[in-house]
Design a protein around this nucleic acid. Sequence first.
DNA 1: CTTCCTGCAAAGGGTTTGCAATAGT
DNA 2: ACTATTGCAAACCCTTTGCAGGAAG
Lengths: 143, 143
Amino acid sequence: MIQTYSKADAGKALTEAGIKPSAQRVAIMQYLMASHAHPTVDEIFRALSDEYPTLSRTTVYNTVWLLAESGAVKSISIDRANARFDYTPEPHAHFRCRSCGKIVDVMLGELPKPSAPGLIIDSVNVFYEGLCDECVTKQSKQN
Amino acid sequence: MIQTYSKADAGKALTEAGIKPSAQRVAIMQYLMASHAHPTVDEIFRALSDEYPTLSRTTVYNTVWLLAESGAVKSISIDRANARFDYTPEPHAHFRCRSCGKIVDVMLGELPKPSAPGLIIDSVNVFYEGLCDECVTKQSKQN
DNA sequence: CTTCCTGCAAAGGGTTTGCAATAGT
DNA sequence: ACTATTGCAAACCCTTTGCAGGAAG
């Protein structure tokens, strides 16, 4: 399934996410909607530098995290940088609180099975994001 | 369930993973077996610096990736560093080939449900590692 | 003696921060 | 004019690399 997205589509997606659609933000959103290559900040920056010669990496950083925090796009981190290490022998998933940053183990009923013909899968990681019980309590007290 | 691990336990785990159990490696492995805090390289380094004053970050880096690549521990990367961004609206998982580094989407039958009382979950990430079809073919040709 | 492991120092790369210039309302 | 956004430059990590010293068999 090949799908194309216009600048108008991208602008609409931004507005729906509550983000003001500046020219740079629209371009970045459109690029993310069109690309299935899971680009990094640097790849986005280089891809758009021709069309926006003054574009800066700072703006790309600002925008992608704005988008990710609003839920308009997803961030995936699978590289070595800032990795954490974990021995626990039982299969389990990880949960990270987006408010306090705490990382906790959560048990997992069963591992998700991929439909991935031809791939040899060595390892499965499941990672949740959200609000931990403490931060939920804090937030409800504030209101 | 609280469990303690001796240096002998750690040494045995290293040997079983095919890794020579040097003093530093045993200490790092023991620390990972005991800790459920998903430590970073720097946290491991600081935790062991008292007992091993000459320990270097280089050795910790070497060791954790040796351990992770042998499967003795798991690495999880969930921080901002080197993040990639992804718009695709349909739920899907990611697969990364440990030989060529390529990242591809894989469709997912159903999302894993966590048993996580009290947590509010906004987002679920599933991430596989292994060998892609191309690298499987390359490897079998070499043999 | 040889090989592997360790660790210092330096380089490299990605990310964040401060602030001035700019654009949009 | 006012406010939000952009983008340059510098600082700030984290990580890797090169190499010399040291440990182990």
